[in-house]
Design a protein around this nucleic acid. Structure first.
Lengths: 138, 138
DNA sequence: GATTCTGTTACGATTATTGTAACAATTAAA
DNA sequence: TTTAATTGTTACAATAATCGTAACAGAATC
């Protein structure tokens, strides 16, 4: 499997929960649909649960379901819930004192990252889970 | 070093080239400023060169310099030149025929990725290398 | 009390990225 | 003409991050 697919899988899981008969199912069934391990599903669901996007019940006949209507879940919330990686990473380095670029580039790159991140997040905030579900059903 | 720092390093290199006395320098000097290997610098510079952002001369007293004025280099060009990873990756999986979500989610996720990518790239396109250089000099 | 879930942790396998080294090609300088 | 210094490229090892697997505690139903 490719790397950094947490967000993608999280959306898949939520769409699954939004489409399933009765509105709830188990991590095992979700894992089949996503084709990954039940354990990874549970780890991801736990994050979504902590973020208030998913409700779970433990114990026998425990299950997972959406905590909110799909119309009220934006993909930005999902992105943040699974703490997916940022738009890009800034390289670590020991600034060379004699080099102005080396000393100041980090702050400048952080500005660039902030703007890039904002652009990406603005797009994510405009898409709701309901949009994705509608797209899947069509 | 953290992963996926290609874009960040590429910007660092270009800022270095934009600031250096005389406008040109060698991969060895750049590597010192970035604190990475000269070889990785050369690989990255080669991509930037193929994209027309950097000019290089080989041979003894070979060197690298910006191919265009910093005002005319957008960070989107840099991003594309180093083929940095996309905003997120879509997980690979074998669609389960009985599951509508599993069958259709991929296309829906591709739509999401396209929009997210657009948001990110729009932000990058608005920042020029000159902006970053000004930020470093300040 | 047994069963069947979730939540969590630990650890190994896998994969992608980065570092290192080597060498050919190129050009200036000696 | 030879030498030296540089880029461009490749191959491979080292490193780091992600993902899969397994195990187990806690919880709730049967």
């Amino acid at each position: 499997m490719a790397l950094n697919t947490q967000f993608s899988i999280a959306v898949h899981l939520l769409v699954g929960l939004g489409c399933v008969e009765g509105g709830t199912t188990t991590s095992g069934h979700l894992a089949e649909s996503v084709n990954t391990s039940a354990s990874f599903v549970r780890r991801t669901l736990a994050k979504l649960s902590k973020a208030g996007l998913v409700e779970t019940t433990t114990g026998k006949s425990g299950a997972c379901g959406l905590a909110k209507k799909p119309e009220r879940i934006s993909l930005l919330e999902v992105y943040r819930a699974v703490d997916a990686p940022e738009a890009f990473a800034i390289h670590a380095y020991a600034p060379q004192k004699v080099c102005a670029v080396s000393c100041n580039i980090k702050a400048a790159l952080e500005n660039v990252l902030a703007k890039t991140q904002q652009g990406m997040e603005a797009s994510l905030s405009k898409i709701t889970l309901a949009d994705v579900i509608a797209d899947v059903r069509r």
